[in-house]
């Protein structure tokens, strides 16, 4: 539970736009629609979706609270499957031998080698369990502040993609310049800042 942990990390975003009213119902529907798939029909190396904050290992929001007006609290789960190189090598060898035995040639073409590798990876992806990574998300929908409780670059990218797919709203990362724009600078001040050049503090 990153959000309530004694020590945590936060990457901040500003959400452009607002949820359609009634806000809580809209959010609940969108989150449920993009909840993580526990058993995707096609095995994937990476699956990203929402879960509840309270039960991140169940892709079901029913019975969990996520609305603490004006905050929405939920979690992004990233399930990753890592295929060990040696295991892939072994399965590729096995699938290659089988393919050769079924034909009358002593070698595979480049295209066939690619197919065999894809078959071996699919075979393994269907059998290897995914490792779940949970990142808490807090959204003050009135203020438009969105916090991801992680500073991992991959998690930040996943959040922006999933957030837009779910709510149709852009989460703008609050990096120094965008933060300055969002902090209350006037257009003239933003213009002056955009023309600034790096300073030199060393003599």
């Amino acid at each position: 539970m990153g959000f309530l942990s004694p020590s945590g990390s936060v990457t901040r975003y500003k959400v452009k736009g607002e949820l359609a009213a009634p806000v809580l119902e809209t959010a609940a529907r969108a989150l449920a629609k993009h909840a993580i798939e526990e058993e995707p029909s096609v095995p994937e190396k990476k699956v990203v979706g929402w879960t509840s904050f309270e039960n991140p290992y169940q892709a079901d929001f029913s019975g969990s609270s996520f609305a603490f007006d004006p905050y929405l609290l939920f979690a992004m789960r990233v399930d990753k499957k890592t295929l060990p190189a040696k295991l892939v090598k072994k399965e590729v060898a096995r699938f290659t031998a089988r393919r050769l035995a079924a034909g009358d040639r002593e070698f595979l073409s480049r295209e066939q080698k690619k197919e065999v590798r894809a078959e071996a990876e699919d075979y393994l992806l269907a059998r290897i369990p995914a490792v779940p990574h949970v990142f808490d998300v807090l959204w003050n929908y009135e203020a438009g502040d969105l916090w991801l409780f992680s500073t991992q670059k991959a998690a930040c990218e996943d959040l922006q993609t999933l957030f837009y797919a779910t709510f149709g709203l852009v989460a703008v990362p609050m990096v120094p310049f965008t933060k300055a724009e969002a902090c209350g600078l006037s257009p003239a001040e933003v213009d002056a800042l955009s023309k600034a050049a790096p300073a030199s503090f060393a003599e």
Partner: peptide, 29 residues
């Protein structure tokens, strides 16, 4: 990127039952 890590805030009450979650959320936020 102004990202913040190793954030420590004053201690908040531990959540022991679900009913205490709302209070903890508002306090920590």
């Amino acid at each position: 990127d102004l990202a913040a890590s190793s954030i420590r805030t004053p201690a908040t009450e531990r959540v022991r039952v679900v009913d205490e979650l709302a209070g903890a959320v508002f306090e920590k936020a």
